[in-house]
Amino acid sequence: MTHPSSPVPCCPPTVASRPAEKVRLDGRVALVTGSSSGIGRAIAVLFAKEGADLVICDLQPESRLPEEVPDTEDVVRVHGRRVSFHRCDVASENDIEVLFGAVKRIYGRLDILVNCAGIFIRNAVVDVSLEEWNRVVAVNLTGYYMTIRAAIPLLLHSGAPSIVNISSIHGRVGTGTAATYAASKGGGENLTRQVAVDYGSRGIRCNAVAPGTIKTAMSQPFRSNPEILREYEKRTLLPRLGEPDDVAFAALYLAGPESSFVTGHSLVVDGGWTCA
């Protein structure tokens, strides 16, 4: 056996002979909250590329980063899928009712729910007002509960139901004076496990993705602070920060058929932050 210091490639793979990759969400109906910017936007676009029809929602249709153009709804249409945008505050029970009314009216069914709408406040616990605390928990935790509650009756009729909650590594480790956000995300992680246990026997899978530092509008103010950016880069083992697509691919994996035996898990997409 020769040592591989001088590898001799042989039998190059013949790309042409491989069948075209099948789309992974063909014809499924997915609801993605927080779809206008960042991770939610990347998920909506990737799911459309993979053959899903969509209902998407956000507080406003426009993205929060100038490079995120055109609007998510228009990008999804380019991929030839059906899509319907709804202005929605996930912390409002009435808005959720209207949103799910639209899902039922347009598609009459739902296969995938992705909870991505979220807000972030960077504050130590003594500096958070009760009003701020209530708003963060209302969007990041109560909002997830209300969409899941509304989705389950529809998901029970799906052949491959899946819920994906976008969480955060802040839901499992403390860092960066984010008490309110961390509390809300930790609650979401436990909600994920509980839904998985309660509805597993009826076929509904429920998982989370826990991103580290992702280059989104939400993290932009902190990434532009050199001191905080250095900390982010130091804690991220891989030599880059995350892109919204990194989280979208994880959400696709958890939403689709590849993860059919995975439920109750929160998958870290953090470049190694939480393993040290």
Binding site: G200, L237, S259, G264, V269, T274
Partner: peptide
Amino acid sequence: IAHCIRFLAGDDASFVTGAVLPADGGFTAR
């Protein structure tokens, strides 16, 4: 299980490292 392994082996998981992913039907979520 093979499909989970393939996900972690491929570029879809290019920002995922140090993750321990249960594929256990919810066993450890209980």
